[in-house]
Design a binder for these strands. Sequence first.
RNA 1: GCGCCCAUAGCUCAAUUGGAUAGAGCAUCCGCCUUCUAAGCGGAUGGUUGUGGGUUCGAGUCCCGCUGGGCGCACCA
Length: 660
Amino acid sequence: MKTIDEILKDQFSEAIGKAFGAEYITDPMIKAADPKHADYQSNVAMSLTKKVGQSPRKVAEQIVAQLTLDDVCEPPTIAGPGFINLRLKKEFLAKALSDAFGDAVSSRAGVDESEHPQTVLIDYSGPNVAKQMHVGHLRSTIIGDTLARVFEFLGHTVIRQNHIGDFGTQFGMLIHYLRTAGLADQPLTIEDLDRYYKEATAKFKIDPAFAEQARKTVVELQSGATEAVTIWNRMRVETHKHYTEVYKLLNVTLTDAHERGESFFGPRLPRIVERVKSTLEFGGEGTTISAHSGTSDDTFDEPYDHSPPQKNGDLPETQDNVRRADEASEPKEITKPFAAISGGAFCVFLPGYVGKDKRPVPVMLQKRDGGFPYSATDLAALYFRVQENKTTPAEQLPLNKDWHADRVIYLTDARQSQHFAMVFDVFRAAQWDHNPATEGPVSLEHAPFGSILGEDGRPFKTRSGDTVKLKDLLAEAIERAGNVKAERGAELPAEKRAIVNRTVGIGAVKYADLRNDRITDYIFAWDRMLSLEGNTGPYLQMAYTRIQSIYRRGGITPGQVRASKPKLQLDHPEEQALAKKLLVFGSVVESVARDLKPHYLCTYLYELAGAFSRFFENCSVLKAPSEDVKMSRLLLCDMVATVLRIGLHDLLGIEVLDEM
RNA sequence: GCGCCCAUAGCUCAAUUGGAUAGAGCAUCCGCCUUCUAAGCGGAUGGUUGUGGGUUCGAGUCCCGCUGGGCGCACCA
């Protein structure tokens, strides 16, 4: 079905062509306008003035003269410098709305699936083994999950990826600590692990003998020594239990099928280094890059294996084709990407990255000691996601086929922006950023987000200065939700009240996060997020509940209303305002996917709830002047409830309630 | 030193590829319920969009400078 935007756009393009000739046809710049001026406006007249050589108002007049929109809107008007203003006819509104919410598509509220479905991979949450989830994971988890839901709703193939931090030196450290404390074979809870992790880190820093042993334990773990791996696996299982509980509480869609820890890429690390070596040319910045593109016929012999890779041995320092980048006494500007051994480590140097000492900062892919830093893991993961053909069912999860992502999206905090920019640049330098199946380009996107701050404007911490554990935070949210009372709230039995508290509390936390622009920091304030007034989760849940209440009072169900096929009557201004708001839902969801910004949807739902409230104040539903109007209004209520439910429940992952 | 991000009403936040008089909520003040959930609605007060230039018919939005705040800058992840 054509959206209103498309109808208007087509008409304007045609009118421009008729008025000035086909060569003048451009984007007619149709926008939803400020309601006090118009429903929609076109600003194309201003942009055409120079090309046409006439005043913008004259241009606008000629376009308007060619428009044939009689069925859609009132006669267009021209205002200001040359705005063309459009008011939709109420008959058109009613028809468009009825079409959008027809029986077959009521579960989609008129939003079509994308005509160009893509494979969208979203990397989010990423908890660490042996650590409890804390507020630092909240934004990634919630925003990532919402985006996954949005892309899915729009008909894209979504691959959720939970990149668990389960690999690295810290685990050698922790295992060694447990051994020295005689705890290595004891059952340990996540709380225990979390505590010992901190203690081990502290000891690592001040005790060189401990640090030395810890490093040896890393090697032991990486070499696959049974005992060390056993302890490590127990930690992973315990942590898995922990974050699975948090996900359930948060209503997050991540499952085991989406889990692929850093250790999964262990066997691929030597290989990605080799691949970079054979793709990017070695030597100085004067060399060109051989355009060897990623192949799609890779096969990996290694079985699916969570154990760490073998240590790769020492790198040869003097390969024929490897230049010592650190030989140069004075730093030179890098103009083209190249690989080199630098300080004994295998690195890729990229243009545009300069450190404090004015020397180029490389992307390190293999350390002097043969170990692999996280850049290598991220690059290997990216390769796996875009280029690699999958050889086992486990690798194919969650799709059960090859992936070849068209769009890879990372949800991490803004501090990692440079890291991802560099990893992406390496990936592009190797010319791997195309889809081997479709030949299309691959978009690599870091969606950074700001910090959560306390009410004092400083990083959000507990009173004693510790990081806030997610589990504790959510428990507090549920408890605090219990204190929220409505003057006319429903009298509910304790069991139902408990469900309401949980739903309202969790919803409030999630909504408070999602409603803010992703990129900015936001202040975490209990009173505001749990407030029953303003742009909050509880307010929106309430709006939904009020609609359900109307149906209960009226002794009728939405299904019965729809079955009677009432004719929409939009005579009251508030009915029309509500109808217009309902019709733009789809374009809002699309903009969320375009900019990766869920707060557009939050703002929209809040405005929709506001439009409903005004309608509710002004247009009595059950005591409507006639049966026809009553049924029309009941249908309108159902449409609002549908959009609220899709928006909150399906897209934001926030539960709705029939009573509260 | 180089780079990235941020700065909007007293407070918390919007302003969707540059559009009309920068909008909400809270707080303050004034109205509206013998109740379709007042957890609501209407109205008032509140702004040199940090600052100085520039581009444009048009700038909170784009470009340059400055101030203030946050973050990053290879063998930790």
